[in-house]
Design a protein around this nucleic acid. Sequence first.
DNA 1: CGCTAGAAGTTGACACTGTCAATATAACCC
DNA 2: GGGTTATATTGACAGTGTCAACTTCTAGCG
Lengths: 227, 227
Amino acid sequence: MSEIRRGDTRPYHHGDLRRALIDAALDLVTEEQDWTFSLREVARRAGVSHNAPYNHFSEKRDLLGAVAAAGFETLRERMQGAALRAGDPRAAFIASGKAYVKMGVENPALYRLMFGPALAAANGPAGRNLEGEADRPAEARAAGARAKAVLDEIILRGAETGAFAVSPDNKDNKKERAIASLSAWSAVHGLTMLIIDDLAAQDLAIDTLVTRVLHIMLEGLVPRRGQ
Amino acid sequence: MSEIRRGDTRPYHHGDLRRALIDAALDLVTEEQDWTFSLREVARRAGVSHNAPYNHFSEKRDLLGAVAAAGFETLRERMQGAALRAGDPRAAFIASGKAYVKMGVENPALYRLMFGPALAAANGPAGRNLEGEADRPAEARAAGARAKAVLDEIILRGAETGAFAVSPDNKDNKKERAIASLSAWSAVHGLTMLIIDDLAAQDLAIDTLVTRVLHIMLEGLVPRRGQ
DNA sequence: CGCTAGAAGTTGACACTGTCAATATAACCC
DNA sequence: GGGTTATATTGACAGTGTCAACTTCTAGCG
């Protein structure tokens, strides 16, 4: 139940406004569960004028990216912690998956922001932005990749110890591990989204739901006897 | 590659504006890949004043809900078609899953709209709306449920024929089937999201990715010999 | 130390949004 | 035909993201 991480340094003109803005936005998104806050509202909360943020973020999406990055970092910490506490790869897989869903369910607004379309670039008419411009803030992308790395590591350990059959024919193929990792992430991400959107069956306790889904995915990764 | 369904009747004052608005919005979302269109833009495209939509939708979210419902209906059709063409439950599972992901990847903006936060209600400070008010438009919810029913049906068939082990101890338990169904939906939904958000490994062809992920999920549902 | 260049913050403006209220217009029913 | 009602328009309001011009502070160099 640790708080979303906040920083504290104040080297600048009016304090570290960049950090203050991110914190204010985190407040809005975690306390008020409002992921559609306006830039001006954030500025108000930070006690500065509506245009001050533009000195630190060239557009609103960049602020959102920074907030999402903070969310991903917390996610990474919780997954990592759960995995370390768990021990063997199978247990780590289940534990970090549960931690993942828990974080999403506890902070739906933040989770929505992390994966939601607010971060994605407004595409040109062609459906893709013309130059190779990254369509999500680089900061958020990188933080997301670091969170995923925790899962990759678990898959790797499982593959090494033979707990997971990451490939039908080639146990240490990197590509096969990537697929296993992606499968697991898909299941966990999809489940979190469905729960948040209230599209999962409501008459089942979330925790048993998560456990069962993760186990099914896990069984799909386990090598079968005799083939 | 069929179009998103559009309707055509014109009984009213200025034609069937409700339908015209939905169509205009579908145009924006499928052709321009813009899921952040304004209500006014939609009205402009339909050739009416900026307030005309309020005679048919009490707020913007209701229009979005109708658009999402159209998307879910198309999704249902494609899954259903793929499943019927496939035959046995295992093949139907894979085929409808592929159809699902394909639809999402081909229409990312529409898919984002269908599951995105634009549909969710702006929550009160407590994080949940106070009265039991449904937080997504009922129309979209219902259409989504109908799409999910296709998957439920496949799972049911697979459970009956013994192709899927939906429960470790109780083969025809309804709750167990719900969990199996939810697991599959999670995997497919999560995978679609990750691909759309460009978070899945790019060096792998989408189709093989989908196939592999679905097979892993499928293996997790298959009964094991000797336990 | 004093000055100055540039960073940080403010004020004001613009076009645009979602939504409300008041008004006009067309369609339908008796 | 006349009145009721659904449908559409015009106008307004508060609020938004972002640009431009201006002011204020501060860090660093002579």
